[in-house]
Amino acid sequence: MPLPVIHITAVQEDAWQTLRAFTNARIALGSAGTAIPVKEVLQFRMAHANARDAVFSILEVDRLSADLQRLRLPFLVVHSQAADRTIYLQRPDLGRRLNPRSAERLLEHQHDYDVVIIVADGLSATAINNNALPVLINLVGDLQQNHYVIAPIVIAREARVALGDEIASLLRARLSIMLIGERPGLSAPASMGAYLTYDPVAGLNDERRNCISNIHAKGLQPNLAAQKIYYLCKEALRLKISGVQLKDEATGISGSDNFQLPKTT
């Protein structure tokens, strides 16, 4: 019996192939006959798998705690009312409220703070594991150098953005800054966002927040993100507003990278 004849179809590149050098978006994939090239199909499946893994990734609390101790920064660990990852994904409302034990712990640290920084897993703990520390190093340095009163940094598990409102309200902080893992995309499974809210209380709408998104190695670099966050923080506290009323009018952002981890002995 003769062997079947296999016809190999050459991949045809798209005319705008050169644009791929400027974006991670899935453009100019080319074609193989009437289909997408096998290479692109496999890369899509890999990207989809990475995004799913990011959703179920675990916040490295021990490593983050050790880093904060090296920075000599006080911190607290809290948990939302979502007991585990499955419940967190099924019940977004529970991720927006603290469990009772965490709320009691925060009440013990009440003070008149200018700023509280919250580090939350969100929908991609990988994003926090990769990007939170360099943002914290630069941001905390700028806040300290300008004499803002900073609350203990709060590490929040199974957290949604709105959980920052309750945390800040219980601590009596005028402004909350939440660093949180964003919903993974097929080209950015480890992207972190930063949300700023002035005068936060539970139940606020998103129009009261400023958001800086796409913070990761191939997006907005962490040190530049810290500069933008600091600018909006300073303006929010000066003008007593945030959200749609507060505009990013910064020009020539170039901040300090002077704040360094202390050397261990």
Rank of each mutant, 00 (worst) to 15 (best):
45 R>K: 07
45 R>N: 09
45 R>D: 07
46 M>H: 08
46 M>A: 09
48 H>M: 13
49 A>L: 09
49 A>C: 03
50 N>T: 09
50 N>G: 06
51 A>K: 02
51 A>T: 03
52 R>N: 08
55 V>L: 14
55 V>T: 08
55 V>G: 00
56 F>I: 10
56 F>T: 13
58 I>M: 11
58 I>C: 09
59 L>E: 02
60 E>N: 14
60 E>Y: 07
61 V>I: 13
62 D>F: 04
62 D>R: 11
65 S>H: 00
66 A>P: 09
68 L>Q: 02
68 L>H: 00
69 Q>G: 11
69 Q>L: 14
70 R>T: 13
70 R>A: 13
71 L>Q: 08
74 P>F: 06
79 H>E: 15
79 H>T: 15
80 S>D: 05
81 Q>R: 10
81 Q>K: 12
81 Q>T: 03
82 A>D: 07
82 A>Q: 03
83 A>L: 11
83 A>F: 10
84 D>I: 12
87 I>E: 14
91 R>T: 07
92 P>T: 03
94 L>H: 05
94 L>A: 05
94 L>C: 04
94 L>D: 01
96 R>C: 05
96 R>A: 05
96 R>T: 01
97 R>E: 13
98 L>R: 07
98 L>M: 06
99 N>S: 06
100 P>F: 06
101 R>V: 14
101 R>W: 07
